[in-house]
Computed example of a mutant assay.
Amino acid sequence: MLQRLFILVLALGLAACSGLPFNAVAPKVSVADVAVKRLGFFEQRFDVGLRVSNPNDFDLTIEALDFELEVNGQPFASGLSQTSTRIAATSSTLLRIDATTQSKDLIRQIESLSPESLKAGVPYRIHGRLKTDRSPNWVPFDHAGVYGGDKEKPEGHPV
């Protein structure tokens, strides 16, 4: 009896720490696109499109999202949104968020990119946290991928 009580308390404790209800899966966040908004001498602003997917069988409202974007293993930009966005069950939406970078980080990125690395694709990583209506806690996220690169064309197919 005491062992069952301990397991129940442990399971509830782990659920409370996860940041979402016990049966929930954390939303997935990935980069959809990045566009230059404003270039300044000290700071640059970008419009970052983030694809946020809700794998759950219930709706979620994203109340806030804060992220850092790394490109080629180096810091690139960061952003914060406090705009409420509802995501239907088992669907996704595109969030547009302003992000900023410092000139030194942008210069470092330009210096590190060679034509060969652009052909292979540029690795990126986005990580941060989001707040939903289903939890008082922030939920972390982390996603890595490769942008661009030459894609091999299958034989026998026109260009």
Rank of each mutant, 00 (worst) to 15 (best):
D98W: 03
A89H: 09
T100G: 13
E43R: 12
F67H: 06
A77F: 10
A24T: 04
L69D: 06
A77R: 08
L94S: 09
E63D: 11
K153Y: 00
E116H: 05
L80H: 13
I62A: 05
A24Q: 04
P27D: 02
R4D: 13
A32N: 11
A88G: 14
F76M: 06
F76A: 12
K153W: 02
K119N: 14
F22Y: 13
S18H: 08
L39E: 11
V122S: 03
A120E: 15
N23W: 12
N23M: 01
V25T: 15
C17S: 13
Q3Y: 06
L5N: 07
G128T: 10
A120Q: 15
K153E: 03
S112T: 09
A24S: 13
H157I: 13
Q3G: 01
P21F: 07
L12D: 00
A120V: 07
G73W: 03
Q82A: 08
G149R: 03
F67C: 05
V159T: 05
E155D: 14
K119D: 13
E63Q: 15
V31Y: 04
R129W: 09
E155T: 09
T93P: 06
R51Q: 14
L5T: 12
G128C: 07
R129F: 08
G121K: 04
S103H: 07
F46E: 01
S91T: 14
R38P: 00
R38Y: 05
N137P: 00
T61N: 10
G19K: 01
A16D: 08
P154D: 11
L8M: 09
F58R: 11
R45Q: 14
G156K: 03
G73P: 04
A99E: 03
I97N: 09
E116S: 12
I107N: 02
A32H: 11
S114G: 09
L80N: 09
G128M: 06
V146H: 05
P158N: 08
L39N: 03
F46H: 08
A11C: 07
D33L: 02
K104A: 14
D133L: 04
R134A: 14
G19M: 01
T100F: 11
K104S: 14
A15L: 05
V36T: 13
W138N: 10
K104T: 13
I126W: 05
Q109S: 08
I107W: 03
Q82G: 11
E116Q: 14
A64W: 05
L118C: 04
P123S: 05
K104F: 11
A24E: 06
D98Q: 11
R129G: 14
A99V: 11
G145C: 06
S30P: 00
K119G: 11
Y124M: 06
K104H: 12
D57M: 12
G13W: 03
L60M: 15
D47N: 15
V31S: 04
A99K: 09
Y124H: 09
V122Y: 04
G156S: 07
H127F: 13
I7S: 14
R108T: 14
V9N: 00
E63R: 15
F67Y: 15
R51D: 15
D57Y: 10
I87H: 06
G156Q: 05
G49P: 01
I107R: 12
D47M: 11
T93G: 13
T85A: 12
H127W: 06
